[in-house]
Simulated assay, not measured.
Amino acid sequence: MPTASPTILLLHGFAESREVWNDFTRPFPAHYRLLAPNLLGHGTHRELVPDFSMEAQARYVVQYLGRQHAAEPVLVVGHSMGGYVALALAERYPERVAGLALLNSTAYADTDEKRHNREKNIAFVERHGLAKFMESFVRPLFAPANRDRLPEALGLLEDIAKATPEATIAGALRAMAARPDRTAVLREAAYPVLLVAGKHDVAVPLADSIAQAALAPTASTLFLEGSGHQAYLEQPEATRRAVLALAAGVFGE
């Protein structure tokens, strides 16, 4: 039977795994049920993946919620690619969403330049290998001031990324490039929305996050001066407070 506990669903980003949430969620109040799946092809999910699209990922997450007998609707928290999956889930299954938090993510589709860069990254991995690619990919995701300040967090992401199968890297990059614009999800949201953005985010421009904040009538925002693309690792206290404030509002606490 579904559990009655208020449920927070956490969706990790590209070349990450459910492990990235461990420290972030450790101080969460015990009455929340926290669910953090490995997305398709990531972490311990090593089954053959024929479809890495955000829609396929969303279907997989809904099936995961069913297997976990999760009380619905749930608060969905998505980081980067996890945010793209969260938006696809909210578009297809709005009745399952009690609230939506996008951490360093965007409802906009990729620009032509971004799509081209994703294909360049795939070609680099094919020529030089995954380990070499991740040595130059992960570090710039942190704000310059945090790259030497947070060696354990940076090392965690590098280790997880280097263990991700190359087929997942290529499949997920192409799926992100092909995803559609989902700004309508924000405009039509009947539930609370939180947007968390970093000033030094090289993957999701701050200007995009500011523009999207005006789309959702139910949106609140957290713009972090000292963060890059990894807000939940770079400024975890502020990000955690914002997510928990959203949760309190969503679940009427």
Rank of each mutant, 00 (worst) to 15 (best):
G155N: 14
L194V: 03
R115F: 06
F251H: 04
V61H: 10
F28Y: 14
G249R: 15
E225I: 01
V196H: 07
A219P: 00
K120F: 10
F28L: 06
I122G: 03
E237K: 07
A143E: 05
P50N: 05
K199I: 00
D159A: 15
F52I: 03
G226N: 15
D208F: 14
V193I: 11
A211R: 15
G66W: 06
N22Y: 09
R187F: 07
A123L: 14
A213Q: 10
A247D: 04
R179T: 02
E16D: 13
P2H: 13
A211G: 03
N121F: 14
L150I: 07
L100Q: 04
A197Q: 11
R96M: 10
R96N: 01
V204M: 05
S227T: 03
E188Q: 14
F52E: 01
P236E: 12
V76W: 11
G78Q: 07
A163M: 04
L141P: 00
H200W: 15
V204R: 04
I169S: 01
G82I: 05
Q63S: 14
P94C: 09
V74K: 08
R241Y: 08
R139D: 09
P37N: 10
H116M: 10
E234Y: 14
F24K: 07
A98C: 01
E237W: 10
A163F: 07
G198F: 13
R96E: 04
L224A: 01
P217C: 13
R241H: 14
E237N: 05
R67I: 01
A219E: 01
M54S: 11
H12S: 09
E158C: 09
E135F: 05
G13R: 09
F52A: 02
H128I: 00
V74N: 07
R241P: 00
A86F: 13
D181R: 13
V196F: 13
Y232L: 12
Q230V: 12
H69Y: 13
E55R: 08
L9M: 11
H229N: 02
Y93D: 01
I210M: 12
V202H: 04
L156V: 02
A36W: 05
S80L: 07
G226F: 11
E19M: 11
A238C: 01
V138S: 06
V196A: 05
R26E: 10
N117A: 12
R46Y: 09
G82H: 12
Y64C: 09
A197P: 00
L130I: 13
M134N: 04
E234Q: 05
D112A: 15
S5E: 08
A231C: 13
S105Y: 11
T111N: 05
S53A: 04
P37A: 12
G66Q: 14
A178P: 00
V97I: 12
V49D: 02
S17M: 09
G78T: 06
S80W: 08
R139Y: 05
T111G: 06
R118N: 06
M54T: 14
I169W: 13
P151F: 15
L10H: 11
I8R: 06
T111F: 08
E47N: 11
